[in-house]
């Protein structure tokens, strides 16, 4: 019976049916069990339905416009003038990349150092305290970070570096803070998952703790660290509220860190309220580009992670 339970219930319900077919009451109960299983399966299927609907409704609204003006023109045309029929998101495409890469420039090294610190160097109480802090950092909503950027980072940049403060730099600072928890948590888990024997072997061979971290532990955790960076990047590209509050949102190509910039996500949230017709379709097309890019990023990471864990299991 327990074996049946573990081997999946389809077999079990068949067995039951045969045994109980003489007793009507039990058969009824049995089919109740069968109904419950199917009902649960339908519930599990709803998340699949959700993602299919999301893809369908965004693509249906966005793709016609992209195919009308051509993907190349849509992505690289620098003129965004939706009320006059010019739908190029080139400046925002570059804007999203610029802010994302600039944010990763400082948050990836800081995040990785902190992850190694928490997993390898910190005494247990300090490591636990850090974990709580990182969780709190992850829990603060993006609009609060955006607000903090608006009232602290932007004025600081305006005062000490010039310009009006709303800039790529402000966006990069705020976005970097926001992806730190993703970077730290995933890479810390990867470092913790490195088998103890690796470390012990290295130390037994006379390597110092630091040499062990650099030559043994970090290389062994490499795939997890890459996952952390890729997912952090996905998070940065998709972030909206914090970026829209601090980057100034002009549709120009940024000519430096102090230049104002608009990202693809900001474009959607800024104009969705009043857009209609082709203008609205252009915003859905912007969403289509984002959606395809981020889902592709996530699928690659998740499938390779699952394949990796299966290899380990085998």
């Amino acid at each position: 019976m327990i074996d049946n339970y573990l081997e999946g219930s389809r077999m079990k319900s068949k067995t039951y049916k045969r045994i109980d077919s003489s007793k009507g009451r039990k058969k009824l109960k049995l089919s109740g069990e069968y109904m419950i299983e199917k009902l649960l399966m339908i519930c599990a299927g709803i998340s699949i339905l959700a993602i299919v609907l999301i893809a369908l409704f965004i693509l249906v609204r966005g793709l016609p416009l992209i195919s009308k003006i051509g993907l190349h023109d849509f992505l690289f045309n620098l003129k965004w003038d939706p009320t006059r029929g010019s739908f190029g998101i080139g400046t925002m495409f570059i804007g999203s990349l610029a802010v994302t890469l600039a944010s990763m420039l400082w948050s990836v090294p800081l995040g990785l150092l902190t992850a190694v610190f928490m997993a390898e160097i910190a005494p247990a109480p300090v490591g636990n305290l850090m974990a709580r802090m990182v969780e709190l950092l992850a829990g603060i909503p993006s609009v609060v970070y955006g607000f903090f950027g608006l009232v602290v980072i932007v004025p600081l940049i305006r005062q000490y570096l010039g310009g009006n403060g709303m800039s790529v730099l402000a966006g990069a600072i705020i976005l970097g803070i926001m992806i730190l928890p993703t970077l730290i948590n995933i890479s810390r888990d990867a470092i913790i998952a490195v088998p103890r024997e690796y470390k012990e072997g290295s130390l037994a061979l006379g390597a110092t703790h630091y040499q062990t971290i650099r030559r043994v532990i970090v290389p062994a955790a490499r795939s997890g660290i890459i996952t952390a960076i890729v997912l952090g990047m996905g998070r940065a590209i998709g972030e909206t509220m914090a970026v829209v509050m601090v980057t100034g949102n002009s549709t120009i190509i940024p000519d430096g860190p102090l230049s104002a910039v608009r990202t693809m996500t900001s474009n959607i949230v800024l104009e969705m309220g009043y857009a209609a017709g082709d203008h609205q379709a252009a915003l859905f097309a912007t969403g289509t580009v984002l959606f395809v890019f981020i889902v592709a990023l996530n699928l690659i990471v998740n499938i390779s992670a699952k394949a990796g864990s299966q290899n380990v299991a085998n």
Binding site: S47, A50, F284
Partner: peptide
Amino acid sequence: FAFIVNLTAETLAGIPSIIYGLFGFV
């Protein structure tokens, strides 16, 4: 089926909120 459901959950978790907003709107 379970593999796909798990993969879907992971993917849903990675989709940015602005995309959910667009979907919810349309």
